[in-house]
């Protein structure tokens, strides 16, 4: 019998469309104490940079209406430790790995991409050009079509696996960026990263986050994500991993209708650490209820 949850992301076959959003799942070890990661369509790991990064001062998170701000600042142990310890462990869990990569310069991204794309179990890279919480690199690469395209070309030239470019919503026209990275050879897109926001402690007259601003995630951003995926799906031919506030099986199908071929669950992992297996278990029943035989029929099937 055909698996009703199977999807294709370009050349990549996934047994289901559910994966964690980068930064919300570490390198998988913590959640593996709660469930078998093999159940997931893939695991997207926390952003990896050439050298270890401490990240921003704390407080790094603040709750906001229906969501949260974070300004972690890409804290990670660096390429060497990730390749020596984190990825080999994850590969043993028998789950496809997508590595989110970040850097301050094009050369940084290229060096990380060249190495991590050749690690066992890695099926794709997610090019992070949309982190709003670092001084250099991050979102700076994702707000101009030319810069985004140049970086995409450079990473594509060295990567041995497909490259998904994770787009920032903090732009005037996300379609323009999507088209630029498509023309530069990207194999797919991830959208959206967090929306830049500010939370204030009234009594202290200070921002809650030490970094002043942070990235907004959670259910609060879901309509923005759906709108952007819809716009981009209509304008480019690349497969899309959709994310932004997904908290239920229903949300997953809405993202797929808007044009996502797979989805990433982020902040909801903090609310319910078992949410991804729960969604995967609920999807077949929901599809049956909707009279849908295969989840991939829904991709881009929004009627407007």
């Amino acid at each position: 019998m055909n698996n009703p949850l199977a999807v294709k992301l370009g050349s990549i076959q996934l047994k289901n469309p559910i994966m964690p959003a980068s930064g919300c799942f570490g390198f998988g070890q913590e959640f593996a104490q709660l469930y078998d990661l093999k159940q997931l369509g893939a695991v997207v790991v926390k952003a990896v940079t050439l050298r270890p990064i401490w990240g921003n001062p704390t407080p790094r998170v603040a709750e906001t209406p229906g969501g949260m701000l974070n300004a972690i600042g890409l804290q990670n142990p660096g390429l060497d430790v990730v390749c020596r310890e984190k990825l080999p462990w994850l590969a043993e869990q028998d789950v496809p790995i997508i590595v989110n990569i970040a850097g301050e310069t094009v050369a940084d991204y290229v060096a990380v991409a060249e190495t991590v794309s050749r690690q066992t179990g890695v099926i794709a890279l997610e090019l992070n050009i949309s982190c709003p919480n670092v001084q250099k690199g991050g979102m700076a690469f994702g707000t101009s079509p030319e810069t985004a395209a140049e970086l995409t070309r450079a990473v594509k030239a060295v990567s041995s696996v497909p490259v998904f470019v994770k787009l920032s919503p903090n732009v005037t026209d996300i379609v323009e960026i999507a088209q630029a990275v498509e023309a530069a050879g990207a194999d797919g897109l991830s959208l959206i990263n967090t929306l830049l926001g500010l939370a204030i402690d009234l009594r202290k007259r200070r921002p809650i986050l030490a970094n002043v601003t942070g990235g907004l995630s959670g259910p609060a951003i879901k309509p923005v994500a759906l709108r952007m995926i819809h716009q981009v799906y209509r304008a480019v031919a690349l497969p899309i991993i959709g994310m932004g506030g997904i908290s239920s099986a229903e949300d997953v199908l809405e993202f797929m209708l808007a044009g996502a071929s797979a989805v990433a669950v982020g902040t909801a992992n903090f609310v319910d650490p078992l949410i991804m297996p729960r969604i995967i278990n609920q999807l077949p029943g929901l599809l049956a209820e909707l009279g849908v035989n295969s989840i991939s029929e829904l991709i881009g099937a929004l009627e407007v």
Binding site: G23, C24, F25, P59, N269
Partner: peptide, 11 residues
């Protein structure tokens, strides 16, 4: 946020 060691908020 997570309480589990995954999100790196409470460093």
């Amino acid at each position: 946020a997570c309480g589990l060691g995954a999100c790196a908020a409470c460093t």
